[in-house]
């Protein structure tokens, strides 16, 4: 059983939703990423989405775009990201790590090599933002061969015929984007999220996570009631931006917020 599946089954038994933080690999400098990953796990994270920096992150707002720019100032490449996951795995063999990024760096490496190296370094899933299932076949084959889950997005505008197609192609978990917009946008309507998530669940047993627009413990708790995983990104990345150069503060602030979210999520049981 994959790390992702194991984790979700375990949480299901405990009656909990997963807390999944996102940070961009190599932001604000490559040395911060692995210690930050460990700190996030300690603060209550169940899985980690690690952003692969890209020069043109079209589906992201200014916060994550700037994170990509900071990481790219250090020339952080896919190989470097694999190195970070490998280092993380030296002391953590349970927490799923999902890479999130855009297709072109994978194309440059070659899909087969990407899947092999991802597996070898301990990556569990790949969320390729600009790769809908229509175009995904060539990447899905090597990912499936290596046992790496392909995570797909669903959005408020996704209609039934596409939901069916996406749940058929995806594995591990599905990622419901809670609003029309880019990452870092405001305002999330929990009732609306619940409606969409339960609609998606008619078509699949794969766990459904929710992300985009979750910035505080109250929202995290509310979303955890209607989904299987709460993904938190821009608000954490903003903490890196605001304290770049001060790793201790970054780790403390991010751990603090994740701890609050964990507590609020678990208290709503």
């Amino acid at each position: 059983m994959s790390r992702i599946q194991t984790k979700f089954e375990q949480l299901k038994v405990e009656g909990k939703a997963a807390l999944v933080p996102y940070v961009t690999a190599g932001d604000s400098h490559p040395g911060l990423t692995v210690p930050l990953m460990h700190a996030m796990v300690k603060a209550g994270a169940d899985a980690i989405e690690l952003g692969v920096p890209f020069s043109d992150p079209m589906a992201d707002g200014p916060t994550i775009q700037l994170a990509c720019e900071r990481a790219l100032e250090h020339n952080v490449s896919l190989d470097d990201v694999f190195g970070m996951v490998k280092e993380f795995r030296q002391t953590d063999d349970d927490t799923p790590v999902i890479l999130m990024g855009y297709l072109n760096p994978l194309e440059a490496m070659g899909y087969d090599k990407f899947a092999e190296e991802a597996k070898a370094s301990g990556v569990d899933g790949m969320l390729t933002v600009d790769l809908p299932p229509e175009e995904a076949e060539d990447l899905l084959t090597p990912l499936n061969n290596q046992g790496i889950d392909a995570i797909f997005l669903l959005s408020p505008t996704t209609r039934q015929h596409r939901i069916e197609r996406i749940v058929a192609a995806g594995s591990g978990y599905l990622y419901y984007v809670s609003l029309k917009g880019v990452t870092g946008s405001n305002a999330l309507d929990v009732d609306d999220v619940q409606k969409h998530v339960s609609n998606i669940k008619q078509y699949t047993d794969i766990p459904v996570g929710v992300g985009f627009g979750i910035k505080d413990a109250v929202t995290a708790a509310a979303v955890s009631k209607v989904s299987d995983a709460v993904v938190v990104g821009s608000v954490l990345v903003k903490m890196i931006e605001d304290n770049a150069g001060d790793d201790t503060t970054i780790i403390n602030n991010i751990s603090g917020l994740l701890g609050d979210m964990r507590q609020a999520m678990d208290n709503t049981l």
């Binding site: 079209m58 669903l154 505008t157 596409r162």
Partner: peptide, 14 residues
């Protein structure tokens, strides 16, 4: 060519 877009845009593209 093709349609390599985030899911958030696929409905609009269709």
């Amino acid at each position: 060519g093709g349609r390599f877009a985030a899911e958030t845009l696929m409905e609009a593209i269709e």
